[in-house]
Design a binder for these strands. Structure first.
Length: 282
DNA sequence: AATAGGCGCAACCGCCGGTCC
DNA sequence: GGGACCGGCGGTTGCGCCTAT
């Protein structure tokens, strides 16, 4: 509630604005104000913002103090670009929670609702505008799930493969991120009918063990059929177990267990065409 | 070098729900 | 019960920086 008598926007307010006889400052915070707020909170703790605003000597509203602390000054506020993992999690959570930014922020330690909201508006909604699609439409939601999330997933896994052949759980301790990754592949596979039946067979290095016989689950990129069984030869070229020849071959470069999966035998397989979700057949 | 336009982000606004008296 | 106050939330604004022309 703006009780200032003569301002309509932040930029139009001056230091001469008055509340209750005191001059109130608005707009960007100075270093001195930040220091004062940090000093006061270090001595008295957070909360009771209106009282804090009065007693600290800051010529700011309680709301303004709260916002400055929570969004900027609080020590655990994480700064810098959102990682692909975080972006993926935001997309996943937004699909479930909608614009409930504070709820989404609770799942991203160190990130504020304001930051996530800004990210959504500047990055995600911008895409919708460019595509002339309503960002709340089913069509856009589908686009996010089918295109954007798999791309982010690819980035996440590429980063991961660069660091370690197998999934490094020490860098991905959030099961929620794992869940978001799994869910990002929940859409039915987009099988490209123009794809050649024999897939590319470039040299694959750093080949990791893959299950002898695996059940392909799902992936928006690959041409494998869900719930069919595949095996591989000594070069890690995959083939359908019903076929005698190596048809539908894809070179597989690495395998990583799906952490947090309800199915312990689920693996991500990294290959020429992207990433596949497999279940070890027993 | 100047300028216009776009973008990112900090900060503000208005509303709402909870709490206290 | 209801009014006042407060904190939290989502939406919006506008400033400053960057980039393209």
């Amino acid at each position: 509630m703006c009780s200032l008598s003569k301002c309509s926007t932040a930029s139009s307010c001056s230091d001469d604005d008055v509340i209750g006889g005191d001059k109130l400052r608005r707009g960007p915070w100075t270093v001195e104000e930040d220091s004062l707020l940090i000093y006061y909170i270090s001595g008295h703790g957070e909360g009771r913002w209106n009282l804090l605003a009065k007693r600290s000597g800051l010529k700011r509203t309680g709301k303004s103090c709260r916002l400055r602390w929570l969004n900027y000054l609080k020590p655990d506020v994480k700064r810098g670009n959102l990682s692909p993992e975080e972006q993926l999690l935001i997309l996943e959570l937004h699909s479930k929670l909608g614009n409930r930014w504070s709820k989404i922020a609770q799942h991203l330690p160190g990130r504020t609702d304001n930051e996530i909201k800004n990210h959504w508006r500047t990055r995600v909604q911008k895409q919708a505008r460019h595509l002339k699609i309503d960002s709340n439409s089913k069509q856009f939601q589908e686009l996010i799930r089918r295109v954007w999330m798999p791309r982010l997933l690819q980035k996440v896994l590429e980063n991961n493969n660069n660091n370690a052949l197998f999934w490094d759980s020490s860098t991905h301790n959030s099961l929620e991120i794992q869940g978001a990754i799994s869910n990002s592949l929940a859409a039915p596979p987009q099988i490209n009918s123009s794809s050649p039946s024999r897939m590319s067979s470039s040299e694959s290095s750093n080949i990791s063990p893959v299950p002898q016989i695996s059940k392909y689950l799902e992936n928006p990129f690959c041409g494998f059929e869900p719930n069919n069984y595949y095996s591989h030869n000594s070069q890690n070229e995959c083939y359908h177990v019903d076929n005698t020849s190596y048809q539908d071959v894809e070179n597989l470069s690495s395998a990583a267990p799906v952490m947090g999966s309800a199915m312990e035998n689920n693996y991500w397989l990294s290959g020429d065409l992207g990433y596949c979700l497999w279940n070890i057949y027993e």
